[in-house]
Design a protein around this nucleic acid. Sequence first.
DNA 1: TAGATTGTTAATCGATTAACAATC
DNA 2: TAGATTGTTAATCGATTAACAATC
Lengths: 219, 219
Amino acid sequence: MVTTLERQRGAPLPTVRRLPTYLRLMRQLRAAGREYVSSIQIAEELKLEAIQVRKDLAVTGIEGKTKVGFPVPALIEAIESFLGWDNTTDAFLVGAGSLGTALMGYEGFAHHGLNIVAAFDVDRAKIGRRVHGKEVLPLHKLPDLAARMHIHMGIIATPAGAAQAVAALMAAAGIRAIWNFAPVRLEVPAPIVVQNEDLSSGLAVLSVQLAEALAPGRA
Amino acid sequence: MVTTLERQRGAPLPTVRRLPTYLRLMRQLRAAGREYVSSIQIAEELKLEAIQVRKDLAVTGIEGKTKVGFPVPALIEAIESFLGWDNTTDAFLVGAGSLGTALMGYEGFAHHGLNIVAAFDVDRAKIGRRVHGKEVLPLHKLPDLAARMHIHMGIIATPAGAAQAVAALMAAAGIRAIWNFAPVRLEVPAPIVVQNEDLSSGLAVLSVQLAEALAPGRA
DNA sequence: TAGATTGTTAATCGATTAACAATC
DNA sequence: TAGATTGTTAATCGATTAACAATC
């Protein structure tokens, strides 16, 4: 059996998307005191194919053990390390509306290496308040603070109309990655990466499936 | 030029996911008074390939016009109809926490044929209150109300630990489609469809991209 | 050892992209 | 008409799945 060992560079995007699911399961197994788990067992639990599980996990550089499977603690470390979730990334959030508030209150981000350190808004009614223990600051303070605190990640939870201007501000402030919850395609200078989170695509899939389920026979 | 006309049955999932983006752009164009738009212009605006735009739109049954492109109003109707967003779907939401509150407050759902009619919770502190104009009812009232109001869609915004029980309750109440925001894989009986909305996969993609951007040269 | 599980190499499947005839 | 754009058919690309040798 020749082993890979090498952590993969350009892992397939669908694989990257599935890694958090593996990580979550592994943490559950670790909490239950489990030392090893086979790809077959993982696949059964997550309704995937065992071969896909092995292919996916291979990108992290983890090495399975013949006959017993993958060591749970090492696998957790491997996934965390691959995703960069072993070190905490501090982030600024812009838009302290209901979505922004929900994101600030989501404690699960701690398990994903993400720490929202402060929120920004232009609404004077919101500025100065604390939301889930985090301060809401005036947006114009973002550039200076981002630079001083070496913040690399920004989260946009503003209305669509404000998002592009916020992205530009973030880019100018040295932010390198933007997690965008506003339904707009952002234009940002070259080195900056953007991940668009779009609820409507998930709803579209569900809507089509529901329509097909409610109107059978026409398939 | 032989035309399709037929609305496609088993459209590719990536296509379905992109349809809301086309719809949003078309609505903007309609608001600007635009009558026709070519696949080339759409592609440029959305950073896609023109051929992909044509392939995607074809699933809705829309017919383009040689030399001028696609009729904007008809395209809007075609996409809405394909997604079932031309008729409003009423939904029940369970879990009136910060995420549930954010979802209840999102006015954009009206443009996606979705209407959250009520929320449910087990927290006595939340029950009886109104959130964004919607009542928060005790969870045990869901089955009876869902049946009486013919609710087909349920949204789960509870903590992970409660989600499976809520899904079972929804299934028993005759709900056919579940939009699940809890980080758990739900087990539901056969005809019910589930769409899992998982923020962590988007964050994973962004994290990997950021890591690659911050550590150049190793590519 | 026999049996179970890994990881590799090859085959399949599905989506994207390319080429191009049809057409207004 | 000439030029632009559609929609079809074919080629390419990438991800998933299958087959199977390696190995403990």
